[in-house]
Design a binder for these strands. Structure first.
Lengths: 243, 243
DNA sequence: CGTGTACTTGAGTGGGCTCAAGCAGGGTGG
DNA sequence: CCACCCTGCTTGAGCCCACTCAAGTACACG
């Protein structure tokens, strides 16, 4: 019945034989590294696929690899005493998951695949050696780290604000989940949206139901499980503007 | 009347003549840089003092320098449309204020001195040259950046959580504002505490009044303007634990 | 002594949480 | 093929915490 390949374990991608052909090379961290060096790299970092929900790194678990995301998204989650989850970061195409635990040696959050994820897997030891040898790569990583910091600060200021009403916060988050510049919006579960904003599942549901009713949002595709929403961007921006 | 020196402008510190004598050298970013190079550095980066409330960098303002904090604290603030402020980071002794704007060329937040701040001022141009030449320094900066990221993620998860009651949040924040390992707690204004937690000034006041009443907190020093509080750490941790 | 700033305290309201039930879709196994 | 369950989403009723608005106080400074 299913048209998707059935895979239960991450599987190596056989489609590409080296990084020279990688369409992402410009965007990736290794952009500045000479191609000759990357070839050695490539024997380590093959392109893997991770099914939805795969736990790529556990909090305080053994640190084995870092990942360059090529497609899909990865969430970094922290759990509180009651088992409630809080998403502290979402990493997308071109981001490097695990710089933090590669350097510190211990992971302070859990990394989970949202939807299907394609990523290059680089063993930490190799990653450490490799970065130590390439100054350009260090600069790249520093920039990535700064970008991440900027993103999280934006979350703090605009998304999780105390007095900001739920409607506004959800609108702002949806706008940040756009697929490129189009009107398609990446659809996370209500639970995940809540875990990002610090709101409950129910509140998210009510707010989004409101947007649907007002015609600012509609489900793309027929089924409930559609991976995207179609949005009236201008209308969302109007809601997001009022604080 | 005032026993403090009166200064309206940042003033250079005359007490030290070079970085070799700097008691902070081990902690600072430049720890790995050979002393010979630091001497050149020193002609640029003298030790400045900034009076409370000094704006060290304006949002979207011209970028002129980065600062190594030697004493005191600096807050990074974002303002929303209504003029409400949100503190996204607090930088303390040993932190480098402005890595982000030095690299990106534009500041996304305003940096303000909390209390009196002692800091080394390094012009951005010099900073860029200097970091480009020293690989060790890049690694250091990367680590600093990662530390900051970790800190902000912690804020997201434990401080600004949606369902977490104000009492718990304030207790957790106070514990993070400890002066070393003692029972002294750095006293910020209620407004600042609120801007960190996403709560109103009034709520902060009520919660702290509660702690004072219950004896978990007492004002250090006689006056209201005391820069510190004395806390029953164990009691605070008990409150902070319940979520 | 008067002014300004920061903090305190009170009364009332409302938005989002909690608890609880109901519903739709997808996968599984008989 | 259908009955079943399980997960994710929806909707409702009631409550409580933190916000809002508004006075009032204490201290610092000129």
């Amino acid at each position: 019945m299913s048209k998707l390949p059935s895979y239960r374990q991450p599987s190596a991608c056989q489609g590409r034989s080296n990084c020279a052909a990688c369409s992402l090379r410009e965007d990736m961290v290794c952009a500045d590294v000479p191609l000759d060096d990357v070839v050695g790299f490539h024997t380590q970092a093959v392109d893997y696929r991770f099914p939805p929900g795969t736990i790529m790194q556990n909090t305080h678990g053994p640190v084995e690899a870092v990942y360059c995301v090529r497609q899909g998204a990865v969430k970094l989650v922290k759990y509180d005493a009651n088992g409630g989850q809080r998403i502290v970061r979402v990493m997308k195409r071109g981001d490097v998951v695990g710089i933090d635990w590669a350097f510190s040696g211990s992971a302070e959050s859990t990394a989970v695949a949202i939807g299907e994820v394609h990523a290059c897997r680089i063993p930490v030891d190799f990653f450490r050696q490799f970065t130590a040898r390439h100054a350009d790569l260090q600069i790249r990583l520093l920039r990535k780290s700064q970008e991440a910091l900027r993103e999280v600060e934006l979350w703090l200021a605009q998304l999780v604000g105390g007095a900001i009403p739920a409607r506004v916060r959800v609108a702002r988050l949806l706008l940040r989940l756009r697929d490129g510049d189009g009107e398609r919006i990446h659809r996370l579960s209500n639970e995940d949206l809540g875990a990002i904003l610090g709101l409950t599942e129910e509140t998210i549901s009510r707010v989004i139901a409101g947007f649907l009713r007002e015609g600012m949002l509609e489900r793309a595709g027929s089924s409930l499980a559609a991976r995207y929403l179609r949005a009236d961007i201008a209308a969302l921006e109007r809601v997001a503007g009022q604080d």
